[in-house]
Each structure stands twice: as C-alpha cells, then as structure tokens.
Nucleic acid binder design. Structure first.
Length: 480
RNA sequence: GGCGAGGUAGCCAAGUGGUAAGGCCGGGCUCUGCAAAAGCUCUAUCGCGGGUUCGAUUCCCGCCCUCGCCUCCA
C-alpha cells in the first residue's frame, strides 16, 4: 500500500518495520463531550486505512489513546461536580457507542493517560537528565525546544520564528517558561485542578498533553514504529512536540510515516467544538440519517482534501450534500449485491474474517486497488459504481457472480460499509391492515377497477405506506 | 507575515501531457391502467493571464479567491 507521508511530503510505500506486523498509533479523542463527526472523519479514515492493510494481507497492531486528563476534562468534570474518572468514563462509553454504530474496528490497545502517569514521569526524568527539560519554581517541567535540533521539521516551522512568537495568537503564559516555544511536560499543581494531581519528583501536579502520546507510544509500540496519525491540526504543535520528546528521550526515529487527515468543513469553515458548529452522530440520526449513511458521507472524499459536509444557503438554512446522496447510493449497491448473491447462490452476508479469505477477482479489482493507492476512497467508490454499471449479474454465470460478489465484499469491507436492508426484506413489519388493503387493491387491479385501486392506494398512503406495483405483484414501503 | 492545502458540471467529488471517473439532483427513454420503484440514457472548453509543448485541465511563472495551522483543536 502507498500513502502520503507528511514528513517527506511524498507518497511512499508502506511496509512493516519488522517485516510482519504493521504497528501504528492514532491520536484519539479527548473525552470531555460527544465526539463530533469531524473527529469521526479522522477515525473513520484511519479505520479504512487499517482495513485496507489487513485485506492486503498484513497483520496490524493499532493503538489509539484516550486523553482523559487535560484542562478541559478537569474543567468540565468540576463544573458537573463529578470525579474526573467518572466524567471521562461517561464520555468514553459514548465514544465507543458511536464507534460501534459507525462500524469501526476496535484498536488493539486503547490506553488512557491517567493509567500511565508513571510512564510519563519516567520519560520526563530521562529528558531532564539528558538536558532536554528543565523545571521551574512552580513545580512545572518544560521541554527545552532549543535543545532539539530537529524541532520544526514536520511542520516546517523554523526555530527563529518560534522564538520570535510570530503568531498573532495571545500567548497564554501562565506557567514559567524560558522560551515561548517551550511546552509543559509536567504542570505543577494548581488549586483549580482540585483533586486531580499526582506525585512526582518535581512535586504534585499533572502531565502535559503532548507527553501522554510519547509515553504510551513507547510503552505499546517501542522506540520506533511504522506510522503515526492524527488530524492535520495536530501537526503543530502536538506531533512536533511528540517527536521532540520521544526522539530526544529514546534516541531513535519515532515513526517511519506520518499520516494526517484533513478537516471536515461546515459551510466552508472548520468544524470544531470551540466554533460551536459541530454535528454529532446522534444528532444526525435524529435528523433521520443512518450511521451507515454518515460513514459513507465521511469517507466519500479524499482524506487529503477538505470535505464540506454542511452547506448553508442565504437564509442560513443547512443542508448536507454528501449525506443526501448516501442513501440512494448505498441502496443501489445493496440491490446489486443482492442480485449478485442470488446469481452466485450464496446465503447471507460474509463477516470480516470471511472476507479476509476472499479472492479479489476481476470486476472489483480496480476498486480495491484504489484504496491501496494512497487510500483513494472517492476513486474506489467511482470504480464500484462503474463496475456495477458495466457488469450485470444477469449476464454472469454463477461462477463469475461469485467472484464478483467476493470482490465487491472485499471492497465494501475495506470501506467498512454495511449495506442497508432493502425494503422488501422487511415484509414482516407490515401491519396486517395495510397488507389487507394492498391485497384488495391487487384484486381491484386484476379486475381493471382503476378508481377503486387508486382509492385504496390513497387509503394505504394515509396509513403511512406506499404501494409499488411490480411485474410479480406489489411491494409495500413505509413512507419516510 | 510564515507554513500548508485547494479552486473541475445545479450540488458533492476523482483523475490525466492527447480533448474529463463516479454519486446525488434534474431532463429523456423503457416498463406500467396511472403512479412509484427499478434499469438505461443526457448534462463541464477543469479560477484568471502568460509560458513550455505538435498538444495542458494536467508542467512552469504571475495574479485573484477560499480554507487550515502558527502553541485549546481530529
């Protein structure tokens, strides 16, 4: 598989460093509220990435952390009068529910910062000993950016700018740092933190945000691993700081590959909690969309391209262009899959493990190949629909149909798409009253009593169902 | 100001040095008592101006515009 690498700015072939298992780390959510679908765009594409690796025959080891102690988790847990652990636990559960609804594979490890305080302290001690960190009078410890020559390489910011504080942003310098660019490894205890402090060689306090990832990477993936991933907004300072911490401490290149995902936009601007323009999975489901449709919409654009998820017209009325096309598109794939399955004489849908053993076949080979080529999900979807148009199940023999069916499922598994149940599959849910009316109408039609037939159709519609006449009888679908 | 990404049909969105995938919407056709559904089908001189080239949307230069990051951020 080939993937763009932020560090080298080129598309590079991926291979596990140990020749066997591809080991990677993804920066996970801060659990202080519901994750919004912008966050999920990142996690979802990382999920597609992992699925693609596994389907192309690699074993993976996927670590994604939970940030369960930082300014916001502390602030908001206190506002709710809850212990930090209880507060973050609640939001962690909610996160997992959404992940599962979105059909995401679980990471192999999902470590939280609070459970790794000793690992972080140990790392700080190393950094202090090696001259990369210093403590201040208030019991904080800072990383000395000027001590790490390679600082700024990932984000291409040179040190001079950092020193000058070239940013327009107001520097919130509540702690005592030598240089503006220096960042906290350990934050000395303050009264606002309440009970949330731990002992350390520098006094009571809590770890800085950037440090947790370095410490947990080292714990679960070692000094060097294959790939590190997160949203583009983490390139600076978060990942830059992680590199500085890990590499100064471990003396090895932290990650071979850096995989960054572009933001989801709302009416042309970044979706974020602070801008209060965010949408959650639950909120979209309340609007009538399904989790599968949300997944489809979020992966339908290239991960390196911003995706405008919400558009607003002149009156500020919102619409969801990517989501609106998802239902039709998914149903179309589902109908094709059903026809293929019937032709192939296969029962039921395959699960993830079964799909891994499938042959890619010819019909959908291009679709899967596009995933392996820099995770080109829109190209993949384009190939899927082109193949659907090009190869009709009725023109295949059962052998061909089965090959195509397996190939389609490999692609769908790579994208992590679950197909919707077609309406005809839910016959048992139709109320008896509606079914009786429909039967009566069918009789009326046979007798060419069109007025009676149309009257019955209206009656059925009033009950919330739509009749569709086919060659072999009728079909009933719920309206909306 | 620095760094980065981008401007492709009504909307969303790929891609290529040789006249542009796909999805949605809309139009047409087939089917049908009608309708719906479904299937088929139609819809673009690729931001502007130069340059290189036999040929550029694709490469180079300039310009305009949009967005992100510049220490809260997926």
């Amino acid at each position: 598989m080939r993937l763009y690498d932020t560090m080298s700015r080129e598309i590079r072939e991926l291979a596990p460093g140990d020749g066997k298992e591809f080991r990677f780390y993804c920066c996970g959510p801060t659990v202080y509220g519901p994750a919004h679908i912008g966050n999920f765009r990142t996690f979802l594409l990382q999920d597609v990435f992992r699925r693609t690796l596994e389907l192309s025959g690699l074993d993976t080891f996927h670590v994604r952390n939970l940030t369960d102690v930082d300014d916001k988790t502390i602030r908001d847990s206190q506002a709710e009068g809850k212990p930090l652990k209880e507060f973050t636990g609640f939001w962690t559960d909610r996160f997992h529910i959404d992940c599962s609804a979105l059909n995401m594979l679980e990471p192999h490890r999902e470590p939280g910062a609070v459970d790794h305080i000793p690992h972080q302290i140990e790392m700080i001690r190393d950094l202090v000993e090696k001259g990369h960190a210093y403590s201040s009078e208030d019991g904080s410890v800072y990383y000395k950016v000027s001590s790490f020559e390679k600082y700024g390489r990932l984000s291409r910011l040179d040190q001079r700018e950092l020193r000058a504080g070239a940013s327009n942003a107001v520097v919130n310098d509540e702690y005592e740092k030598d240089q503006v660019a220096d960042f906290a490894l350990w934050k000395g205890r303050r009264k606002e933190d309440g009970d949330n402090y731990w002992d350390s060689p520098w006094g009571e306090g809590r770890p800085g945000w950037h440090l947790e990832c370095s410490a947990m990477c080292r714990e679960y993936l070692g000094d060097s691993f294959d790939l590190h991933s997160g949203g583009v907004d983490l390139i600076f300072p978060h990942h830059e700081n992680e590199i500085a911490q890990s590499e100064a401490c471990n003396g090895a290149t932290m990650a071979d590959h850096w995989f960054h995902l572009t933001h989801l936009l709302v009416d042309g601007g970044k979706m974020s909690k602070s801008a209060n323009n965010f949408y959650t999975l639950t909120g979209l489901i309340e609007k009538g969309f399904s989790a599968a449709e949300v997944r489809f919409a979020l992966i339908c654009a290239s991960y390196r391209q911003p995706l405008n998820f919400v558009a607003k017209d002149g009156d500020g009325k919102e619409s969801f262009p990517a989501l609106n096309s998802a239902r039709q598109a998914l149903e179309r794939i589902a109908r094709y899959e059903e026809a293929l399955r019937e032709k192939a004489g296969v029962d039921g849908l395959p699960d993830w493990e079964q799909v891994k053993a499938f042959e890619k076949g010819e019909v959908f080979a291009g679709a899967f190949a596009a995933l392996e080529n820099d995770l080109n999900t829109p190209e993949t979807l384009g190939q899927v629909f082109s193949a659907i148009k090009r190869k009709k199940p009725e023109e295949m023999d059962s052998r061909e149909a089965k090959d195509a069916w397996q190939g389609l499922h490999i692609t769908l598994a790579g994208l992590g798409l679950k197909l919707p149940e077609l309406s005809s599959a839910a016959v048992q849910d139709i109320p008896a009253e509606v079914r009786e009316l429909a039967e009566k109408r069918s009789v009326a039609r046979t007798n060419r009593e069109w007025e009676e037939s149309d009257r019955l159709r209206d009656e059925i519609a009033a009950l919330g169902w739509e009749v569709k006449d086919g060659k072999e009888g009728f079909e009933l679908c719920p309206i909306n």
